[in-house]
Design a protein around this nucleic acid. Structure first.
Length: 291
DNA sequence: AATCTAACCTGACCGC
DNA sequence: TGCGGTCAGGTTAGAT
C-alpha cells in the first residue's frame, strides 16, 4: 500500500499504541522478509521502550530507549494492524488484513498494555532493520535519500538543481528517491498531471516555471492524500471507515480510457487518459493537458 | 556516473 | 472450475 501518504497514515495509526510503551515480546515467524532480519532482532527489541514513531520517506522509524531505531519498510504489500487488549481490531489500513490472511503475519509485537501490533506482507517486499539512532542519516537506507517533500528542505530551487543535469524522463527522475523522498507511481502521475508536464519529458527540459508548479503540485497532492488517509487500491474501506479515500480523487492514475477531468470541466472537450509503460511501470497522463 | 532491466514474491483478475 | 497470462502502491543488484 505504501507511498508517503499511506506510510504517514500508518504512522499516525500506530503511534498512539506504540509511543511511550515497551515491547514486551516480539515474534518473528520467519527469519527474513525481503532481506534477513537483522542479527539478534528480537533481543534488541524486547524490553525496549518506543520513545517515538517517526517516518522518513516511505520508512517508519521506531526510536527506542536503547539508542537504536527499528526501521520498517512496507514494500508493495506490507500492512500493519493493531489488536487491542480486548482482542478487538483497533487499527487496520485495509480490510482483508491479518484476520483473513494470517499466514502472512510475519512479525508481531506484544506491546505494554496488552495490544498486539501485527505486520502482514503477502509479497514480502518489505523489510526491517535496526540501526543506531546516531547513524540514521548516514545509514544505507537514508544516506542518498532526497529531501522530505513536505519539509522546508524541499524547494523548487533544489528540485531544479536535481533535474537540470539529467536527461532521463521526468517520470523516472521523480520515482528516484534521491530526487525527492517518498513519491511512488501514483503520486508522480498525479503531480505531473497537476503541473501539466508529460511523463516522457526529459528532466532537463522542464522549465523553471514548470518546476515551481511541479514542486507545488507534489506538496499539494501529498498533503491532500494524507488528509484523506492515503489511497487504498483494490480493497474496500478500512475497518473504521476513516482511512484510504484518496483513490476517489485520482485525476489520471488507473484511469486509462476515461475522460480527463480537467479537459471535461475546464476546456469543454473530451480527452481520454492514456497509459504508457516507462521503465516497467505504468504512467497515466492526459495528452492534452500534459506536454 | 547515469540509466535501464531483471529480479524479488504472492494474489487478484480477466479471457478462454 | 481450471489454466495461463497480466498486472500490482517498491527497491536493488547487475549489466550496459
Amino acid at each position: 500500500m505504501p507511498e508517503l501518504p499511506e506510510v504517514e497514515t500508518v504512522r499516525r495509526g500506530l503511534a498512539p499504541t506504540l509511543e511511550g510503551q515497551r515491547l514486551l515480546r516480539v515474534h518473528a515467524h520467519r527469519p527474513d522478509l525481503r532481506f534477513p532480519l537483522p542479527a539478534n532482532f528480537t533481543n534488541r527489541l524486547v524490553g525496549r521502550r518506543v520513545t517515538s514513531l517517526g517516518r522518513r520517506a516511505k520508512y517508519l522509524i521506531a526510536y527506542l530507549d536503547s539508542g537504536e531505531a527499528l526501521i520498517m519498510h512496507l514494500g508493495m504489500s506490507g500492512r500493519f494492524s493493531i489488536v487491542d487488549a480486548r482482542g478487538v481490531l483497533a487499527f487496520d489500513d485495509y480490510a482483508y488484513s491479518t484476520e483473513g490472511d494470517p499466514k502472512h503475519n510475519h512479525v508481531e509485537f506484544d506491546v505494554e498494555g496488552g495490544a498486539k501490533v501485527i505486520y502482514n506482507d503477502p509479497r514480502r517486499f518489505g523489510f526491517m532493520d535496526i540501526v543506531a539512532i546516531a547513524e540514521l542519516e548516514s545509514c544505507k537506507h537514508f544516506k542518498a535519500m532526497g529531501p522530505e517533500p513536505l519539509s522546508n528542505q524541499f524547494s523548487a530551487a533544489g528540485l531544479a538543481a536535481a533535474l537540470c543535469a539529467r536527461k532521463t524522463p521526468i517520470k523516472s527522475a521523480l520515482l528516484d528517491q534521491s530526487t525527492v523522498a517518498g513519491l511512488g507511481n501514483i503520486y508522480v502521475c498525479e503531480a505531473l498531471f497537476r503541473a501539466g508536464i508529460s511523463p516522457t519529458r526529459p528532466s532537463n527540459a522542464v522549465t523553471p516555471s514548470e518546476i515551481v508548479a511541479l514542486s507545488a503540485a507534489i506538496r499539494a497532492v501529498l498533503s491532500e492524500a494524507i488528509d484523506a488517509g492515503g489511497s487504498t487500491l483494490r480493497d474496500f474501506a478500512a475497518a473504521d471507515g476513516s482511512l484510504g479515500g484518496f483513490q476517489e480523487r485520482f485525476d489520471v492514475y488507473g484511469r486509462e480510457g476515461l475522460a480527463c477531468p480537467h479537459c471535461a470541466q475546464d476546456k469543454g472537450i473530451t480527452t481520454l487518459v492514456q497509459r504508457l509503460v516507462q521503465s516497467g511501470r505504468s504512467s497515466f497522463f492526459c495528452p492534452s493537458c500534459q506536454t
